[in-house]
């Protein structure tokens, strides 16, 4: 019984942390362009000129 007194709040707190994280993500627009986010990983930033960037620029 005594373990429950602190285990339940801990469990709820961790759950609430996850919930807060999710709500923050929704509010800051992370779910607005899911397809775009998946594709953006393929884009190299221009400030890192390496072989990949040059290849990417060939398409443009």
């Amino acid at each position: 019984m005594t373990t429950l007194v602190y285990l339940i709040p801990v469990a709820l707190f961790l759950g609430a942390l996850g919930l807060a994280g999710f709500l923050w993500a929704v509010r800051s627009g992370q779910y607005e362009d899911l397809d775009g986010a998946a594709e953006r990983i393929l884009i190299d930033r221009d400030d890192e000129p390496d072989g990949l960037t040059r290849r990417a620029n060939m398409w443009n």
Partner: peptide, 11 residues
């Protein structure tokens, strides 16, 4: 519809 499209347009 792809990353290259987005990149081209944005730059």
């Amino acid at each position: 519809h792809c990353a290259a499209c987005m990149h081209a347009i944005e730059t």
